[in-house]
Simulated scan of single mutants.
Amino acid sequence: MGRKTGQNAKVEVEVGTVFYAMSALSTVASPAADIRKKFTTSATYLSDREKLQPVVRLDGILSGFVITPGTAVNSIDYSAGKLYIKGTLVSVNAGTITGLIRPTVNGQVHITSLTVDIDGNVNGTLGNAGAAGGERGAAGGVPFLPVDQALIGYLNMIYYDGSSSGGVVITAAEIDSETKERTILPSIEILYHDGGGSNPTNVGAINLASQLPLIHAATAGGPGTDGRNVYASYYDVTFEELPESMDFSFTDDIATIKSKAYRDKYEESSLSTATWSMTGTTYWSKVKDLIDLIKSTKRWVKLFPDADETAFWVGRGVFKANRNVPLDGNLDSAVTIDGSGQLFSKSS
């Protein structure tokens, strides 16, 4: 087989997008460590252009919902708050919950979870009374949470002398207003294309810092069947060929960091994060053209060594253009792409 040339090469760039409205994302099925941690989109390549980045909404509290003792017996007050449920922003006014239940046996606790649903209702779910420290759903433990609701806190109700069930003002010590499901936790990482690692999905994905626990269920006693919902809106990208282009090349490099400490006999070397960049030339004849559209923006680019074959490199980077207007010669533009993130090699 003879050596190949770049005569039939092709460069494609991101020129358009397809919008996906706010909707639920599905978690991967394997490996176990990624279930309820990595969530996939319907986009192969998520756009990273300004104002087109994904918007991710994890069920949880945005602000407010401070729980304090109520003035009536067995009651609490909660402040106004905002939260996301199933991708929808829900605003709730301040309110009061009465008729909360204490244990009827000395030495036991009765825990109530307080959650908010998509209609803005603050709901109490009563656990099973028992000795403190029980497992979730068991006697003395916190109850499982209703599905499609977000936790704003717990009430750890205790027995008090002189009453079998308890008509007494709730104390601050019985309120856990710090334990909430917050929309900012766990933190998220946007995988604009999940094409690397040991278990790539080869689509755009959202990776959470930790797994979402199965603590939501149809009943307070469980078992847990659901984690929180992860919703997102985003843009998939569409490509077009960069016309009349030539001499494109790229560097896929990694820097070496050298160091030496006292009494070290030899210098130590470590590797930095891999980087890439691409350069090339394209002819132009109009001021308003494709180069004018993509310059000074971050976009996806594909480089096909052979347009008749399916293999290509793909990555996203910032496009820069330097137009040349020679006195005697073709109008051309030197294109530079400063890579952002990984450069992927694809067979198709």
Rank of each mutant, 00 (worst) to 15 (best):
T282V: 04
R49I: 08
V109P: 06
L126G: 01
I175R: 03
G2S: 04
T40C: 15
L343V: 08
T115F: 07
L242R: 00
E268H: 09
W276A: 09
I67W: 03
T44R: 12
V142M: 05
T251A: 11
M22E: 13
S348F: 12
T281W: 02
G127F: 01
V56H: 03
D264E: 11
D194N: 15
V325I: 12
G127D: 00
G120W: 13
A321W: 00
L185N: 05
G317S: 01
I85S: 08
N156K: 14
A217R: 01
G95A: 09
T17P: 00
D161I: 12
K86D: 15
A80G: 10
Y20I: 07
K38M: 13
F65Y: 05
I85C: 08
K295C: 01
V314G: 01
V56C: 07
P305R: 01
A209Q: 11
P326H: 12
Y78E: 07
S249C: 01
T238G: 01
V142D: 06
T44Y: 08
V13D: 02
W276I: 02
E240D: 05
T273F: 12
S340W: 10
G197W: 13
N128V: 15
Y266G: 02
A139V: 11
Y262Q: 14
Y45K: 10
M22W: 08
I291K: 00
S277C: 04
K10Y: 02
T115D: 02
K4Y: 06
K180P: 00
L271K: 14
A255Y: 04
V92Y: 09
A261S: 13
W313C: 02
E178L: 13
K37T: 13
D176T: 04
S47K: 01
T71K: 12
D247R: 11
I118S: 14
G16D: 00
G341M: 05
E268I: 06
E181P: 03
A72N: 04
T88F: 11
D264N: 11
D306S: 00
V230G: 08
F65P: 03
E174A: 04
K86S: 14
V28D: 11
A94E: 10
S63H: 03
R136G: 05
E268Q: 11
S177G: 07
E240C: 06
T219I: 10
S277L: 03
D176F: 02
I76A: 01
G196A: 15
Y231K: 08
V122L: 08
Y20H: 15
Y20V: 09
L89E: 14
T251M: 08
G153I: 03
V287H: 04
S23G: 14
S345M: 13
S270Y: 02
D264I: 10
T98L: 08
S163A: 12
S63F: 07
I190C: 06
A29L: 15
L331K: 11
S30G: 15
K10C: 06
Y78T: 03
P213H: 06
M246Q: 13
A24K: 15
L208W: 06
N74P: 06
N229P: 06
A80T: 12
A307L: 01
A150S: 15
P186G: 07
R228K: 10
K82V: 09
N199K: 14
K295S: 02
A129I: 10
L191F: 07
R263T: 14
I257L: 08
S113T: 04
W300R: 00
I175K: 03
S42W: 08
E135R: 12
D289I: 01
I118Y: 12
K82I: 03
